[in-house]
Design a protein around this nucleic acid. Sequence first.
DNA 1: ACCTTAATGCGAGTAGCTGGCAACAGGGAA
DNA 2: TTCCCTGTTGCCAGCTACTCGCATTAAGGT
Lengths: 143, 143
Amino acid sequence: MDDTLDDILDRLRRDGGRVTASRRAVIDAMLASTSHHMTAADVVDAVRADHPDFHESTVYRTLERLAELGVIARIQIGPGPAVFHLSVAQHHHLVCDRCGSVAEAPSGLLDAVAARLRREHGFVLDPGATPLHGLCASCSGGR
Amino acid sequence: MDDTLDDILDRLRRDGGRVTASRRAVIDAMLASTSHHMTAADVVDAVRADHPDFHESTVYRTLERLAELGVIARIQIGPGPAVFHLSVAQHHHLVCDRCGSVAEAPSGLLDAVAARLRREHGFVLDPGATPLHGLCASCSGGR
DNA sequence: ACCTTAATGCGAGTAGCTGGCAACAGGGAA
DNA sequence: TTCCCTGTTGCCAGCTACTCGCATTAAGGT
């Protein structure tokens, strides 16, 4: 999966979707972001920097569409807002349920588990969409 | 960790908490539930069946407290409400991101991953709080 | 019985989406 | 190029799932 802007737009079109200015802007924002995960609000801000009057709900709908296509993954880290990241930038999230910190771990960690789930349950794991919960080093060391 | 009602109440007390009628009711509801996971609203309903005037926010606060104590785990399955389950009934949740179904898998699946995370990242995984996302057999078979 | 402090009721407030609807605009067909 | 169909947008009201502050109540050690 090669994820340049045009690639993604092609994918959209092939799926019966239309390429519009706001979709281009959302994808641009995500490709350009240095951060690995953006909340919907982050994306709205980034998009508005260039196009001040794109509407919030359009961004939500676009993110939803891209997630359906598998271009981005939506992950729910704790009770706050969901975060989105490009599927191509696979990595795991280690979420501390005490202090809320989020660390990243290299992808591949769950490969063995994924194979087993597929074999035994027919379940196809999406590691990028699966945040790992627990306690970070400092919170677990504290007790 | 033996999780009868009295055990849990003891734990609460030892932690400086107080045993009140509503806490008893919340724990009762969770112990009595046949379902492995209840949303906060489910708990409110169950509690109100016996005690119609317990307030919603009390239930939320009780669940929060019990989660802190480690008696129950709060897990976020997709965009909807969080679900809670007794920590003693450890099992994994296989969440289908397409159809929303939730299957259960026996605990132990993540043991190897947990060991590795602890060794390499100092991160203490809580498998019960970690729903596994992906596609269920029928959704992944469909394409 | 007393007193400290945790827990509750109540209600208002908030974040983070979601949905309906009319207007608009891609993009394949003609 | 123009036309038309249907996907997409703007706008905004509405909603779900909590969260908070505050006065009142009550648990439980002394």
